[in-house]
Design a protein around this nucleic acid. Structure first.
Lengths: 174, 174
DNA sequence: ATAACTAGACAACCACGTTGTCTATCTCGT
DNA sequence: ACGAGATAGACAACGTGGTTGTCTAGTTAT
């Protein structure tokens, strides 16, 4: 009978990473609500950033965020509801609906970004700028070259990469 | 009109942290499924670890994970369904149902832990043990003393602390 | 012209969390 | 001894953010 083995430094590291993210996101979004952007949920902001960076259709947003186009469409609908984006049919391709960030959307991004930067600066002050730079550099390297898992190989893997995970394999129509 | 400002190093840091977590969790759970633990979802493993560490009732698990006791109860039900825990009424307190980790549960924890450790070791090999130690140390400090947000103060904040976030304020009965 | 691909909409579903309400049980102060 | 209050858990309704599957319409390539 296998005995306890409750602790795993690997698992603890994973929790630290998740905790770090939550720690930042919670604070930012609380403060964001405080400053006139109530309905915003973590994810909205990142999606908005991605749209602004050029992912101006639901399908493209889905690809960049590694979620299904349907999920991306729902996010866009939410952003539209909140007044952060508008959509209009692409004159050059009647299938597409081009998404555009509104001024209010840009404002939210600016405030959110500033808040995130604020947290980051506080962290830099706590552990030192060089340490934080190193931490980011390491994380970037670690996240970037995630080895393709055995299961991924079982399917047709195109080499698409985005944010942080291997591209969703778009089977059939979707 | 506010102009773009698409990049925010703070937001990027947040994404790196989240990406790091996903990178680990995805890999571990793919491999876990591969080794005879199919239904396991990230979260299940952490919950199981917490139970094994002494959170043997739904309410207590909820407190330690900073989720509602109802959410914790659902998780326990899932773990039970998967055969990782059993529940029996506490003879000393008929309200409580004590949760116990089964041998299969311990096996899953052991394998999962080993897999997480494996990823961590690979990271250590990539960036160096001392760098990884430093990274963890910093994260721990950063996560630990998350300043209480303005909104938290608006409510009665008891000083409870768990995993990584301020305790859920248990209003009314829940 | 037609076949193949692509964008988006819609529906059904699932995982995981939330609140609110209810009952059963325990604990403690008078 | 007992009644008030706290606590554990069950149940229901709901929200969010994903998933698949299916469908239509428009575009592209042969």
């Amino acid at each position: 009978m296998i005995r306890t083995m409750a602790r795993s430094s690997g698992a603890e590291l994973a929790l630290l990473l998740l905790g770090g993210f939550h720690s930042m996101a919670d604070e930012v979004h609380a403060e964001l609500a405080h400053r006139g952007h109530e309905g915003v949920r973590p994810g909205h902001e990142f999606a908005l950033r991605t749209i602004d960076a050029g992912a101006d259709t639901a399908s493209e947003l889905g690809r960049r965020l590694s979620v299904s186009k349907q999920a991306a469409a729902k996010t866009i609908a939410a952003l539209q509801q909140l007044g952060y984006v508008v959509r209009e049919t692409d004159p050059d391709d009647a299938r597409r609906k081009r998404v555009q960030v509104t001024p209010r959307g840009h404002e939210m991004m600016a405030i959110g970004g500033a808040l995130f930067d604020e947290v980051r600066n506080r962290w830099a002050a706590q552990i030192g700028v060089r340490q934080l730079d190193a931490l980011e550099g390491h994380l970037a390297r670690l996240v970037e070259r995630r080895p393709v898992s055995a299961d991924d190989l079982a399917r047709f893997d195109d080499g698409l990469r985005e944010e942080n995970r291997v591209a969703a394999l778009d089977q059939n129509s979707q």
